[in-house]
């Protein structure tokens, strides 16, 4: 039996030798169970060892293998080559991020933002005083937002982030909401400054594509837009009760 081949066109960029990115095409034999990530691994192992890309778990948990696949932000491990046959696949690094090399982007901007939202529980009382109790409904308020794997597909989907890289962006704001919405957390006041800022939730124009491409059903657009209500409430409460701060 002869194996089918599919063409995988990859964006190539070498910071040492290239002034601008270029595209390189590879003909890759594939089977029906091969993901796009496996296609890239085939290229790396058999055709061109210099192709650079990130990957780790191969099962949509680690969030490392986000690429633009035919213009759509996707996890390479979650999509199959068979679905792109015979048209072929074009793989590019995630949009809106600087390219370090080939399919690898520079995530440092996101990591700074992630740190700024204080992505951890800030307890109300001394944790030594026993366990927090939480009802299933209280857990449901934040659970979906806690499923984020920091794959950055939402940032690649967000034109507002592309146009204004100062925008805090979908994943960081969704994670901010994940902690604010947690009944065990008392750090809301510390995080509201980021929510209220021009580059916080108000930088979002509800394009909504972030939620479409999210591989974990986090729905960052929802987290952001719920916080537009919270931000407005916060503004008026501070306005009417300045002593509250």
């Amino acid at each position: 039996m002869t194996r089918k081949t599919i063409s995988i066109e990859c964006l190539r960029y070498h910071p040492g030798t290239d002034a601008a990115p270029r595209y390189q095409n590879y003909e890759v034999p594939f089977t029906d169970d091969m993901s796009v990530l496996q296609g890239l691994q085939y290229i790396k192992d058999h055709l061109d060892g210099s192709l650079t890309f990130r990957w780790s778990c191969r099962m949509a948990i680690c969030g490392s293998c986000g690429y633009m696949v035919n213009g759509v932000p996707q996890l390479g491990c979650q999509i199959f080559l068979r679905d792109y046959y015979p048209r072929g696949v074009r793989v590019e690094p995630l949009n809106h991020f600087p390219i370090v090399r080939d399919l690898v982007i520079d995530q440092s901007d996101f990591l700074k933002k992630l740190e700024s939202i204080k992505p951890y529980l800030i307890p109300k009382t001394d944790p030594g005083k026993g366990t927090y109790l939480q009802t299933p409904q209280q857990m449901d308020e934040y659970y979906q937002y806690s499923q984020c794997i920091n794959c950055l597909l939402c940032y690649a989907a967000c034109p507002q982030y592309g146009l204004n890289p100062a925008f805090t962006g979908p994943a960081a704001l969704a994670l901010l909401h994940r902690y604010n919405a947690d009944s065990r957390d008392a750090g809301k006041a510390q995080r509201m400054e980021i929510v209220n800022a021009e580059d916080g939730v108000w930088g979002c124009t509800l394009v909504g594509y972030c939620s479409e491409v999210c591989p974990k059903g986090v729905d960052p657009a929802r987290a952001i837009n719920q916080n537009k209500i919270n931000s407005t409430k916060d503004y008026f409460q501070n306005f009417l009760m300045p002593w509250r701060k």
């Binding site: 910071p15 601008a20 213009g71 949009n95 809106h96 600087p98 594509y209």
Partner: peptide, 22 residues
């Protein structure tokens, strides 16, 4: 400092039907 390449945003909304509808 690592040398990186930043892609331009010109014409971004024409590149994906989702953005055209937006």
């Amino acid at each position: 400092q690592v040398k990186t390449y930043v892609r331009p945003m010109a014409g971004w909304w024409r590149k994906n039907p989702f953005y055209v509808w937006y």
